[in-house]
Amino acid sequence: MLLVSRGVQDESLLEEHLEQCKVTKRKLKNELQSLDEKLESIKQSRQNKILTTLNQEDFQLDEMTQEEISVFITYSCYKRETPSDNNG
């Protein structure tokens, strides 16, 4: 009954159905891996942007609290982005 609900009318078509499922699984796995790589690239880019921005400023980070640094990073690195910056 489960096979019929998934479009397999006959047990002889079971192998074909399973192969289609395997192909779909491979495609999804590859897409997920690609998205993971893209996410990692975005994270690395953001981290590099933060470090570059911090290195360009004329103040001592050790004189700032963690909250002040967080606010600075949010303002300096994220609020200045234009829509074209988000396209990767």
Results as ranks from 00 to 15, higher is better:
3 L>C: 07
3 L>D: 00
3 L>P: 01
4 V>N: 09
4 V>L: 14
4 V>W: 15
5 S>Y: 12
5 S>L: 14
6 R>I: 02
6 R>P: 00
6 R>G: 03
7 G>Q: 03
7 G>Y: 02
7 G>C: 10
8 V>P: 02
9 Q>F: 11
9 Q>N: 05
9 Q>L: 15
10 D>P: 04
11 E>C: 07
11 E>S: 15
11 E>V: 15
13 L>G: 12
14 L>K: 06
14 L>C: 08
15 E>M: 11
15 E>G: 11
15 E>P: 06
16 E>F: 10
16 E>I: 12
16 E>P: 03
16 E>N: 07
17 H>S: 08
17 H>Q: 04
17 H>W: 07
18 L>H: 02
18 L>N: 03
18 L>C: 05
18 L>A: 07
19 E>H: 08
19 E>I: 12
19 E>D: 07
19 E>V: 09
19 E>C: 15
20 Q>E: 06
20 Q>R: 10
20 Q>L: 13
20 Q>S: 11
21 C>K: 10
21 C>S: 09
21 C>E: 04
21 C>Y: 07
22 K>P: 06
22 K>A: 11
23 V>D: 08
23 V>S: 11
23 V>W: 10
23 V>E: 14
24 T>D: 12
24 T>K: 15
25 K>R: 13
26 R>E: 11
26 R>T: 13
27 K>I: 12
27 K>R: 14
28 L>E: 13
28 L>T: 09
28 L>C: 04
28 L>I: 09
28 L>M: 09
29 K>F: 09
29 K>S: 08
29 K>C: 01
30 N>K: 09
30 N>W: 14
31 E>S: 10
31 E>L: 12
31 E>P: 05
31 E>T: 11
33 Q>H: 15
34 S>E: 10
34 S>L: 12
34 S>D: 10
34 S>G: 12
34 S>T: 05
35 L>K: 15
35 L>I: 07
36 D>E: 13
36 D>Y: 13
36 D>S: 15
37 E>W: 10
37 E>M: 09
37 E>F: 04
39 L>Y: 14
39 L>T: 09
40 E>C: 03
41 S>G: 07
41 S>C: 04
42 I>K: 09
42 I>Y: 08
42 I>V: 11
43 K>F: 03
43 K>A: 03
43 K>E: 05
43 K>P: 00
43 K>V: 01
44 Q>Y: 05
45 S>T: 02
47 Q>A: 05
47 Q>I: 02
47 Q>D: 00
48 N>E: 01
48 N>Q: 07
48 N>M: 03
48 N>P: 00
49 K>F: 02
49 K>D: 10
51 L>P: 00
51 L>F: 03
52 T>P: 01
53 T>F: 00
54 L>M: 04
55 N>K: 14
55 N>Q: 06
55 N>H: 09
56 Q>G: 15
56 Q>V: 00
57 E>K: 15
57 E>Y: 06
57 E>C: 05
58 D>S: 14
59 F>M: 12
62 D>L: 12
62 D>W: 13
63 E>M: 15
63 E>N: 10
64 M>R: 14
65 T>A: 02
65 T>C: 01
65 T>W: 00
66 Q>G: 11
66 Q>Y: 13
66 Q>N: 15
66 Q>E: 07
67 E>W: 08
67 E>G: 04
67 E>Q: 14
68 E>I: 09
68 E>A: 07
68 E>T: 03
68 E>V: 06
69 I>T: 07
69 I>G: 02
70 S>R: 10
70 S>P: 00
70 S>M: 02
70 S>N: 09
